[in-house]
Design a protein around this nucleic acid. Structure first.
Lengths: 106, 106
DNA sequence: ACCCTATTTCGAAAAATATGGAAATATGAT
DNA sequence: ATCATATTTCCATATTTTTCGAAATAGGGT
């Protein structure tokens, strides 16, 4: 993963509203959630939600699929795993990093 | 870890310059690196660097220790691990998340 | 064609961030 | 005390982000 991409994903998650939004999608599981449902949980205007959602989609952390008039949103687990992997790798690059998360000592 | 804190740390890392800066500190290992050294590697004005550094320190991702006139900066590994843990937990909360990073199936 | 719901785009304003030169502060050496 | 180096703080500016109402678009249903 390129540093630029990692940074953009981190930035996307680095906003309380978006992190909360992402959390909701993660907890929703594979089935995902329509935009309207998310709005009910977050209680923010639809235009604001749409912007945040777009940000997460643009950075590859969330995917969307149309089902008639509703748009289903899903957390992109592989995307998140790649990001976590990047952070873990950076963290343990050539430093001792004992309590690392599942990274074999290189 | 509170969502707010996670978000602020993610935001801190979500800037290319700061992510690069953090990476440099991680790779520097336990010994850390003086601000001046970092500046040489990043080639940005000292005031800009100082601002970015402060951001990382404020969010708890970097620690600093004075040694005479130079300030040694170190990546705060436990801090990063806590953040990675938070992300991994969120990611695997109640969803199937097969390729997770070292998280036992709950 | 018209209507209804879902969602996005437009447009605009407020707030936050990023950047860096210049001046200030910190610490030690002479 | 003076100087020299290291780093921060002050200040200002350009850019980006955040927010959201209003209008537009998308996708059916009748």
């Amino acid at each position: 993963m390129k540093l630029e991409k990692a940074a953009s994903q981190l930035e996307a998650l680095g906003n309380p509203t978006r992190l909360q939004l992402y959390r909701i999608l993660v907890r929703a599981g594979e089935g995902g959630l329509p935009v309207g449902s998310i709005q009910g949980k977050l209680d923010i205007p639809s235009s604001t939600l749409s912007h945040h959602l777009k940000r997460l989609v643009d950075t590859g952390l969330v995917t969307q699929e149309r089902q008639a008039t509703t748009l289903i949103c899903r957390a992109n687990y592989p995307g998140m795993n790649a990001l976590i992997g990047y952070l873990a790798d950076e963290c343990c690059a050539d430093a001792s990093c004992a309590p690392a998360v599942g990274k074999a000592m290189a």
